[in-house]
């Protein structure tokens, strides 16, 4: 068997390139905890309205007891509910997406908020948005003939602006 010395060198270089890429990915995954949405959590997509977590009044942006921002969204043909939400910039938050019908996917352009929304499973993504602005959340998996029309609006506000909005909304709740 004959393998040219130059070819052997090239194989070593190619192995080095692969090892370099794999190394960076493993470093980020294992030490910086940068992972794809992979929480393997099941839910009955036909009974979301009966689940406490995804009942209508719990959808959208909430701040839990520890001050962590949690966003709960339902993907259903042809909209993400709620249709419009406001979140703070430069704040770590957790998105929890579920489908009420078929397969969907969602991404927010120019950010790394991206996940498939598979019926029967909860898709959880942790992220933060560095730049304030008005972003669309777009359905990116074919879900039916109205697929093009499936999107929602995400307003990313400066931190203090968002806090004021939260306060005024809570105030409005108290007035009722």
């Amino acid at each position: 068997m004959h393998i040219d010395p130059l070819e052997k060198q090239w194989v070593q270089i190619a192995l080095g390139i692969c090892a370099f890429f794999i190394g960076i990915i493993m470093l980020d995954a294992l030490f910086h905890n940068i992972n794809a949405p992979s929480n393997v959590e099941t839910i009955d997509s036909a009974r979301l309205h009966l689940s406490e977590e995804f009942a209508e009044q719990n959808l959208g942006v909430q701040v839990d007891g520890e001050g962590q921002v949690v966003v709960r969204m339902i993907a259903g043909r042809y909209s993400f509910l709620p249709k419009e939400i406001s979140v703070p910039a430069e704040t770590k938050m957790t998105f929890r997406w579920v489908s009420s019908d078929v397969l969907h996917g969602v991404h927010i352009p120019m950010t790394n908020m991206s996940t498939m929304v598979v019926p029967g499973y909860v898709a959880q993504v942790e992220t933060s948005f560095p730049k304030p602005g008005e972003y669309p959340a777009l359905c990116n998996e074919y879900c039916g003939l109205g697929h093009d029309h499936m999107w929602s609006k995400i307003n990313v506000l400066e931190k203090d602006e968002w806090q004021q909005l939260q306060l005024s909304m809570n105030g409005a709740d108290n007035d009722e």
Binding site: P37, S38, G105, M116, V117, V118
Partner: peptide, 17 residues
């Protein structure tokens, strides 16, 4: 399936390697 919720990150990393 990197972006899929029904598989855990360890398996995805293994397939990624």
């Amino acid at each position: 399936l990197y972006m899929d919720p029904e598989q855990a990150s360890g398996w995805k990393l293994l397939h990624g390697i």
